[in-house]
Design a protein around this nucleic acid. Sequence first.
DNA 1: TGTATTTATGCGTTTATGCGTATGAAAGCA
DNA 2: TGCTTTCATACGCATAAACGCATAAATACA
Lengths: 116, 116
Amino acid sequence: MVNQTLVQEISQLEADFCFALSDPTRLLILYALADEPRNVTELTNDLSVIQPTISRHLKVLRERGLVYTVRQGTTVTYHLSDNRLIQALDLLRAVMRERLAYKASLMEETKASTNA
Amino acid sequence: MVNQTLVQEISQLEADFCFALSDPTRLLILYALADEPRNVTELTNDLSVIQPTISRHLKVLRERGLVYTVRQGTTVTYHLSDNRLIQALDLLRAVMRERLAYKASLMEETKASTNA
DNA sequence: TGTATTTATGCGTTTATGCGTATGAAAGCA
DNA sequence: TGCTTTCATACGCATAAACGCATAAATACA
């Protein structure tokens, strides 16, 4: 039997970790960094998002350890911490795609029966 | 080259999907359903969370297709839609665990150098 | 039909999040 | 030392999320 409070704390930590994935700009940042490390200016240009917004999202990712930084002079290069993050996102995307396809098929059935 | 708007829309969808994972109660619900399907009352008892809160979290999961329902009389049994959701969560948890261990080791170093 | 059980939702309040603007801080260089 | 570039952050606002309480909706059954 596992301590009830401990289970809740772990769930809280994991939810906080997943929170980092719940914003489209942050996901685009992660995919970009998975391609190759980039500094803030490069991310700003590549994603067409203004710099303070990029920095704020990077802070969310950094605080939770999804990315890490390397300073080179005035530039700060961000790296993806672990490729398993992309693996996990790919799994989620696959599930999502199938769910959406299923929903779409239901819509088709509804349309058909409405026409009948 | 992929349409820029399309990429943003897919990221929005995926972020919305991940949003479902960003709450500790919803994670506990998913793990409970991975163990075995349960109805609302059972989830309420098992997680010690009041029924309206459970129902609202279930709605978030249901709308995004992470769970599906089977009605039996007055009770509604919830099922996990896809076990890859648990696989993805396990991956994330593993990454998180290593990141936390790393942070902890940094804390140890800091403590040591402070003492020196 | 009336009643009990199970689940979903409306409402009001509190808290959290995201964003744009402006500004601060750090590092390199003339 | 000043100037420039790069990145981080504070502030204020608008919006969204979470929760507790009360209540509605759906179903079964006497």
